[in-house]
Design a protein around this nucleic acid. Sequence first.
DNA 1: CCAGATAGTCGAAGCGCTTCAACTGGCTTT
DNA 2: AAAGCCAGTTGAAGCGCTTCGACTATCTGG
Lengths: 338, 338
Amino acid sequence: MVTLAEVARHAGVSASTVSYVLSGKRSISAPTRERVEQSIKELGYHPNAGARALASSRSNIIALMVPLRTDMYVPVMMEVAIAVATTARAHGYDVLLLTGEEGPAAVRRVTGSGLADAMILMDVELEDERLPLLRDARQPTVLIGLPADTVGLTCVDLDFTATGALCAEHLAQLGHREIAVVGEAPAVYERHTGFAVRTLEGLRGRARELGLRLLHRPCEGSYESMAGALARIFDERPGTTGFVVQNEAAIDPLLSLLRRQGRAVPEDISVVAVCPDQVAAQASVRLTSVAIPAEEMGRRAVELVVAKLEGRGADEVTLLAPELTVRASSGPAPHTAP
Amino acid sequence: MVTLAEVARHAGVSASTVSYVLSGKRSISAPTRERVEQSIKELGYHPNAGARALASSRSNIIALMVPLRTDMYVPVMMEVAIAVATTARAHGYDVLLLTGEEGPAAVRRVTGSGLADAMILMDVELEDERLPLLRDARQPTVLIGLPADTVGLTCVDLDFTATGALCAEHLAQLGHREIAVVGEAPAVYERHTGFAVRTLEGLRGRARELGLRLLHRPCEGSYESMAGALARIFDERPGTTGFVVQNEAAIDPLLSLLRRQGRAVPEDISVVAVCPDQVAAQASVRLTSVAIPAEEMGRRAVELVVAKLEGRGADEVTLLAPELTVRASSGPAPHTAP
DNA sequence: CCAGATAGTCGAAGCGCTTCAACTGGCTTT
DNA sequence: AAAGCCAGTTGAAGCGCTTCGACTATCTGG
């Protein structure tokens, strides 16, 4: 193991000079800098992370807490995680991967040990038990998702309320009056996951304003559960012509089932999904959808947390405006018998 | 920040005693231990990670390099990552998430800085440029996946050759003679990804032995590309009755298309997939499949790497035996006109 | 031509922990 | 009763780095 001291000796300077060359916190003459850099290269020197962390009380690590569950939005999670890792590296940070498993204990461990300089939490619940701990942690934190009370917190999320509203508007504009919402699995609602609840609120609110009839049915991602939900929907509201799909796992089953029942998309039934663009574009019918901007959420979260680490930036809630892309799964409502 | 020294003072013992209580590396009398533990609790002490790393030259961190690309097997990646994180925690390690983006540089950074005690690499290519670096790194490494040359390396992977063979056997046993393989996207092969190549080799080898005719067609996950591939398959080999699907994104499109063409599964066409059990069970037809044991691969990788860290365990290649589960998508080959 | 600023470098004091050698006092062993 | 051993505890020496204050040499403006 090559140490700073050895580099210093090799370059004929003091240890502090080498340190300042590395950090740039003091000016160093060009010849000295070059000599030091040359020595670093020749010796193959790499600063020791532990020693650095101890001396500077900065680890250059950002902790990312991802949900343990894989009952929803796995691709979204993965995309966020990768965006976080990539963006963090671009700012000189590494990413520590924590699963939700430990819950609040993980937060305590990280904040207490100085393992990470900052934290990013995903899959925040409306009344998340980790929040009180964050409020008086030394480390700045950014949430991806929106809890019920955001006072003193920095959050990034898609504006799911607006997303719901946007879906309702799109279908209303096309003349649809009876809308079914294929929701997330019941467990997701029971967990008080913000985005699921908010999307529904947005849908309901706008539907009321526009005079739409709305029927919400939770749905596991499987084919069977979608079949069951669909049967109940048409049973209860035979006039349904518009679907909003919130659960991306339900998309393929829904399209399959509709086709099998002889209902054409978009001629008889219009479908709007809330999912990443890639998923929407790959389905058997190219789906009209509101994109979930996973990459942007991850990137923004890192940028916000880095800003806080550098003393810039304050607490704020960043809601990304939803964008609806019209593809091949939505069209004018069919004329029904008068 | 509470330090070890403060705990020692509070408990009326020396710092080293507190350290030994924490690490258990020396025997401590019960009364002393209790007093120290009490002080730790009262003061809310958490050992400082940086100081620990510096003094012990162990960071208690395992680095996990995941592929940057999301062109395949996202759920598998995610499941592996979560299993790694969970298992690592159970052994007292945290996980550092690295993306493939930096390539060999990331390996150098981690091994050089002592940021992590060990590494786990996913998505290893047959001639991976990171391998030479690993061979003489201080940190033990485990690969998930199999490079061409495994000398001096520890690897865990599903036995994809056997997997391919198993699929061929299953279909042969049911009387199928003409088999089509829906492969990964061409980019995956160009990248020399081991599992894709090996699966194919296993299929080809066994097919030859059993007298099956095999047709391999790469396929992006999209509906369009599956439609194209399928058309070409039936065009070239109208007698095809068995399908092996390697690309999990192609599963739903394939089933949809077959149904639309009036080909019944499993009456006319049998389908065997290589994918996680959850995916197989959720498809519109419950799929006969060989499971990709993502959780087990992640768990094993951590166990192997921890064993190496503790001086147990040596270099070895662990190939998990494939298991084929018969579900509703495969059945006897239809009797064709003589 | 000198006071004061500025650039460039260094020495030394830690950062909070682990671990080694050494010590103490009570036991067992012969 | 002397020798040896063991459990339990301690002091001190770092681990490799950052950073503060101090020092020297070179400029700058009045």
